[in-house]
Design a protein around this nucleic acid. Structure first.
Lengths: 337, 337
DNA sequence: TTGTAAGCGTTATCAG
DNA sequence: CTGATAACGCTTACAA
């Protein structure tokens, strides 16, 4: 196998410009002192040769690589992909670069993903799905890597936790349903059992109970459109058919609405009020016009990147909690309003 | 500022295990000769210390970093995010890791993204949107980086081009519309003007013309749901209202269908036949049941990663073209079938 | 099989 | 401001 043409190195640039290697290095490091004349000569030679700083080598010396790992499953889901879009964009503005790790396969794969993050000496890892083992996050933290957990459990010490006020939103929805004249409430959930999904369910049931109402709760499958349809099957064939259903996510709600309309010939919101959570793009499509809670995606991304780009805390990492609010977006899937 | 605890290095592992550094290195490189006893001692020490090979440093010696850049805009779009999911998954299986670069902002940003790919010494770049300057792709190729262009122009020499038979699919659709009894054909496109979108349009118009029919063509805005609604406004208020419309993508089709139904009270497929392209998840939702062409996403990812993981060609890179077929998925937005 | 030593492309330190 | 030199953490001849 022939020796492949390698990348241009700073030495070659230095030779062509007739200067020292350090001069080249300084030209490409912010805040280094180099005369305008020198800078121009170096840049000229670099341009001519097509030189680009090797960030891999740079990271060996510096204590940061500029790499941030995004650890995520179901990444093609509307909510997830929107969040990824927002995060990558802001990371880039902050001079970081995103490494995307797909954990669709097993639960263990979150741990594997974090190991990968360590191998590439990522400055930070952002976890959008699954829950890593404490031992592995500790390893990351010990190595100076920062961790952000978005809508995950908030038990571990060290990472930044970004969570929503799910329970409060759920209570809000109970009130909205009551105002719309609904009395037979239902909650449609997946079987994923993630903290935020369960918080919505518990909050909804608790708020209804506090007002003297019972809630039909049904859980099924993954958090998807198809599961929403199955949940509709189950809830709408009960003897006491509900007149209002809060779906744990918009995706479930879309599936639920389609099944309610096309299989049960129900009219929304006349026969049935429906609400969701996330405010994915499809919720605003006129076939759904779904009343839902908006994930503050931009805000999440902003808080995350701001924290990542900030100075390292001197003291040992403590648990940092960032609780954000989800606004209600009112559309036409609930009567009144 | 205090000196932050650094990562564990191979030297520390070697010391703890009482062996040489090279022994540690060999333990973690495939195909290196190391005795079972040695391997065990090293692994034990590594485990105890929480050692992980520094891939950044490793890449300095090896001629590959394991990094593959995904360069993409509109990444939260259903089709794009599905493709990203498939690509990241297969890249990981092939032992690579994906670096995601968002080029939502300007056209120039594709070039910037490729520069970033060079800085991180990516083994390859996969371009899903936009079109890079020839000078910059040449630079990448000269540096031994591979480039894959998915549904882009296929003029440049060197990269792997993966394209679909857009024109053929479009012709197929003309036939389907004719069979359904439609005579007043329309094509709804965005103003993005990408090669694949334009190929669909030209193919559709050409096939219709060849059969003695004219096509109303309308182009508007970005390739989005909202644009689809606007296109419906424009096409459905024409004096000769079309009875069949081929939308350049499913997203446009969803917007078109919703506008046709809710603003023009039309029934699909009775009053109007609609078709799309991509087979995004929403096309299968029962509110749409859209007849469309399926992007062979898994096949695209497979071909891409297979080529990337393969041996470097010895000769100078030539233009490689991979033309894939898009199957028609028949649902209920066209009469008959 | 194992250890020694050289080198990968940077940056940081320290004289000049 | 500039240039030599020593790291950074790793791999890989080469020699033992």
């Amino acid at each position: 196998m022939e020796k492949r043409k390698d990348f241009i190195s700073a030495r070659e640039v230095a030779e062509r410009a007739g200067v020292s290697r350090s001069a080249v290095s300084r030209t490409f490091t912010d805040g280094a002192s180099v005369s305008p004349a020198m800078r121009r000569r170096v840049l000229e030679a670099a341009e001519a040769l097509g030189y680009h700083v090797n960030h891999l080598a740079r990271s060996l010396m510096r204590d940061e690589s500029g790499i941030v790992c995004l650890i995520v499953s179901d990444l093609s889901t509307p909510y997830r992909s929107s969040l990824i879009r927002a995060l990558t964009q802001r990371l880039q503005v902050a001079g970081k670069v995103a490494m995307l790790i797909n954990t669709d396969r097993s639960d263990k794969s979150v741990d594997l993903a974090l190991r990968q993050a360590i191998r590439y000496r990522a400055d930070a890892s952002i976890i959008l799905s699954g829950m890593p083992d404490k031992s592995i996050t500790d390893l990351c933290l010990r190595n100076g890597q920062r961790i952000v957990l978005i809508n995950r459990d908030d038990e571990q010490e060290g990472p930044l936790h970004i969570n929503l006020d799910d329970a409060k939103a759920a209570e809000h929805m109970v009130v909205a349903f009551l105002r719309a004249g609904c009395r037979r409430l239902a909650f449609a959930n997946s079987q994923a059992g993630t903290p935020s999904l369960m918080a919505r369910e518990r909050g909804f049931v608790a708020a209804a109970t506090a007002r003297g109402l019972t809630v039909s709760v049904e859980r099924f499958g993954p958090t998807s459109y198809a599961s929403g349809a199955v949940l509709a099957q189950r809830l709408l064939t009960r003897s006491e058919r509900p007149d209002a259903v809060f779906c744990a996510t918009d995706l479930l709600a879309c599936g639920f609405m389609d099944a309610a309309r096309h299989q049960f010939a129900m009219s929304i919101p006349d026969d049935l009020c429906v609400a969701g959570f996330d405010d994915i793009e499809q919720a605003s499509w006129s076939s759904y016009a779904l009343t839902t809670f908006k994930q503050p995606i931009e805000r999440i991304a902003q808080e995350t990147v701001f924290w990542l780009a900030g100075d390292k805390p001197d003291a040992k990492p403590q648990s940092i909690l960032c609780r954000l609010h989800a606004d209600l977006v009112w559309r036409n899937s609930i009567r009144g309003g």
